[in-house]
Design a protein around this nucleic acid. Sequence first.
DNA 1: TTTATGTACC
Length: 597
Amino acid sequence: MPPAPATATAAAAVLHLEPFLPCLTTFSHYKQFHAQLITSARLYFEPSLRARFLDRLALSAHAAALPHALLLLRSLPSPATNDLNAALRGLAASPHPARSLLLLAGRLLPSPSPPRPRLDALSLSFALKASARCSDGPATLQLHALVLCLGCTADVRLITTLVDSYAKCDDLASARNVFDGMTVRDVASWNALLAGLAQGTEPTLALKLFHRLVGSFRELPPREAPNEVTMVAALSACAQIGSLQDGLYVHEFVRKMGVSGNVRVCNALIDMYSKCGSLARALEVFHSIKREDRTLVSYNTAIQAISMHGHGGDALKLFDEMPTSIEPDEVTYIAVLCGCNHAGLVDDGLRVFHGMRVPPNVKHYGTVVDLLGRAGRLAEAYDTIKSMPFPADIVLWQTLLGASKTHGDVELAELAATKLAELGSNVDGDYVLLSNVYASKARWADVGRVRDTMRSNDVRKVPGFSYTEISGVMHKFINGDKEHPRLQEIYRALEEIVSRIGELGYEPETSNVLHDIGEEEKQYALSYHSEKLAIAFGLIATPPGETLRVIKNLRICGDCHVVAKLISKAYGRVIIIRDRARFHRFEDGQCSCGDYW
DNA sequence: TTTATGTACC
């Protein structure tokens, strides 16, 4: 036991156990305290002390603590609600949150002995935390029913937890419904919904809600006033959408609220600016954080930003400059490796990978396989997969397939395709890559076979789309778009573009088109790729010289990359395209990726 | 003793 906080005799210490509670650190302390509770009979006669002890024990970081807490709970002849809650809370925060739900379900079963404690709002709150952590939608729904049964619908904190839980289970509609049904809200309720929408599939809706919130700022009761957490959620929505306009607006609001010094807000700003294409502003925010205030996440986000923009050398530099007081974690290594990858720094990447101070996970192996694969070191890439201490996932085989395609290795491509089929991947990209390998070797019969398999397997097509922001309005384009209101104009502009860049030597690169169609039709399919439509629209809808920003859901294709370079030269425009993995910045006929991506 | 917050492989 740690020394008693007061000078007391042993007898007095027995009378006052509470002061020791905050001092318990080692597992041995906990066991001694437990023994004291038993020998003084307080385990039974002071239920509130017991519950507070259980709560601390269940939340303690020591591996043996939580099992010990559960043992203690089971040993109680008549556990109180607070005892149960302590265990529910500990389990919900543990690596196995589902056990919290099991405990709750067990307590619900009718059983005369030992008597089941009643559930209260706190029990449900902890259980909802658990169902959120395991993304268990049906459990959240059942807990919602219990909330209604227990009549806790006026408990703002509990209902906020319910909103959060629905959102974390990807049931945004229910999250929204519960939120809308709240008669009293506070800022946490707003934040739970905003964060849920922003990180889920509804970032646009999140921003709408944010505007509604700050628009009625003056009339809101103080408990609903937006705070720094609101800002972080809104910035995360801007980052996901890639809307620099909205991001700048939120940043303005951050300044007005006086939370520009909050490190979490700064980290969110770095991420937002980076994902909206402005690396300069992202780094400005990073450097504005006082050195001693920078957290691991600040470094990770900044390194990730530099990497996404293709500056692998600078990413390595910042990584090396990290203070020794901050230990890099798995995310740091992903960010640095990603930077080496996008910049083609093979040896640096391998050096970083082999020097990792945390165990590499499948994503780290993924970057290394990509790094080696792109550089044409296919055998080493495959050996890396074989050497992994865990099985390869779909993404890893797709990476190897991509590398095999780039370097025309039929055997390895077939192997990767077989693995992908075994793992149940059935997206068009897999087939396109395999077919391209065959096509590059003029093995037309195999190309046809792949196409037949595609047809019979009912392949899932990932529709390609792009969007661009013009005067604060997002315009979305899908491949071969026929819906946009200014379609005629856009298609005319595209024709003009193709003829103008034709003078610079442009010829459509059709090898990425799978379908067995004539050359002219292939060119047609290519010329309406969504990013081309978005760029063409940007050219006619913005004044000369203005930077064009386009966001694409898939990776940019080779032909669009060539076209973007030529447009940047022919029209004197900077074009910034964010694709699935990184940024391409086109200026005067060159791309920041150096044609390596 | 509950609530809401940032970074991640193709």
